[in-house]
Design a protein around this nucleic acid. Structure first.
Lengths: 208, 208
DNA sequence: GTCTATAGGACGATAGAC
DNA sequence: GTCTATCGTCCTATAGAC
């Protein structure tokens, strides 16, 4: 590893710093509230550098949307490879997600801002929806053997919903959501699958 | 009911319109992105009217925070009064929350924006946390008889988390979260409570 | 109480030096 | 590729007419 960075390495480093700073500021201030000046400043640069890497504030935001915000549950694959439906895996899964709630705060706040931003932009909402397929499928594969006949995709959606909702509540009030609840509630849900009769899929048409 | 409004009635109506318009614009554009001009315009007034009712944009936002955004789960009391742990109640609860996901969109988006806004303002975060006590307690009372020894407060937190997470996913992708899933996943969770051994409360100290 | 007009400031984006 | 300086725009908030 050379002491001095090559031109392209320096450029890549600048870009990376800008993206990290942008993630922070967008999360804290929202899209409209974030100023390109502050983003550049936090990255240790000025607007000039920012505009040489990105066409503008919008493109910077969308680049972040595409490149940087992998969903927390993307990493579920790491845990899936060891899954046995046993206590160890439950605990690992729960601990991992409690950690997400406490430490990946910029990422999850930024995800919220993407959602709000996308809600008024249909084409972005589609891309956001597509983003959830992979983690949902990963969780579905993980739990399929323990679904007791219920649709693994729906079980996965419920599990992801459960964790997203717990993460959200824990960010508001840590005391209300002890870390063990991530594990416990997953256990409750999985135990209930076996005890619940399987119903016909989608007996009602999608309303409206 | 008189045909012409009294002065104070007209004033109250203006205030209400301004608050409704503000809720929409804040939800769509975020706090910083919302302009007082657009809020006033959507309310059918001008900035002058707005500033005669509110000290400024910040106060308008905080007033909304205090007065208008009752959490969806506040209404859980209506259902709680009829709860028997039976299929009818499950279905009503699920249907109600699927409706929230589909129709109360401004409210839930605004809640998201409040959360992001509050995350960098500790005193607001405390008030937001306090906001969740009542619905959590209402759900806890609702499910207490069916908790099988588990802490009803924690069960309530899990249930609320589950629905918040499902609502969020449904707003991104309706097809992924059929309305019945609200009912089904609640059934799974409740059924699992009875089958899961009760663990000692909080065996681990709160980390960090 | 509500409107119109405007002051004062912040921001996104660009131009030109290095 | 990055910086400094600046232009034009949009926004919050206020002042004064009605």
């Amino acid at each position: 590893m050379p002491l001095r960075l090559s031109r392209s390495e320096a450029k890549a480093r600048t870009r990376k710093r800008l993206l990290s700073a942008a993630a922070e500021v967008f999360a804290e201030q929202g899209f409209a509230g974030a100023s390109v000046d502050e983003i550049a400043f936090r990255a240790g640069h000025t607007v000039g550098a920012l505009y040489s890497h990105f066409a503008g504030k919008n493109e910077l935001f969308l680049t972040l949307f595409d490149e940087r915000v992998s969903h927390p549950l993307d990493h579920v694959g790491e845990i899936a490879s060891q899954w046995e439906g046993d206590e160890t895996t439950f605990a690992a899964f729960g601990a991992y997600l409690a950690g997400v709630a406490d430490h990946h705060t910029v990422r999850s706040t930024l995800e919220m801002e993407f959602l709000r931003y996308a809600l008024t932009r249909p084409e972005l909402l589609d891309r956001l929806a597509a983003r959830w397929w992979a983690p949902r499928a990963a969780v579905a594969r993980l739990v399929a053997p323990h679904c007791g006949g219920h649709d693994p995709a729906l079980v996965a959606t419920a599990i992801i919903g459960l964790f997203e909702g717990l993460v959200m509540q824990r960010r508001v009030d840590r005391a209300a959501v002890p870390p063990q609840l991530f594990t416990e509630s997953l256990r409750w849900l999985m135990a209930g699958l076996a005890r619940t009769p399987v119903r016909p899929a989608d007996p009602l048409p999608e309303p409206r």
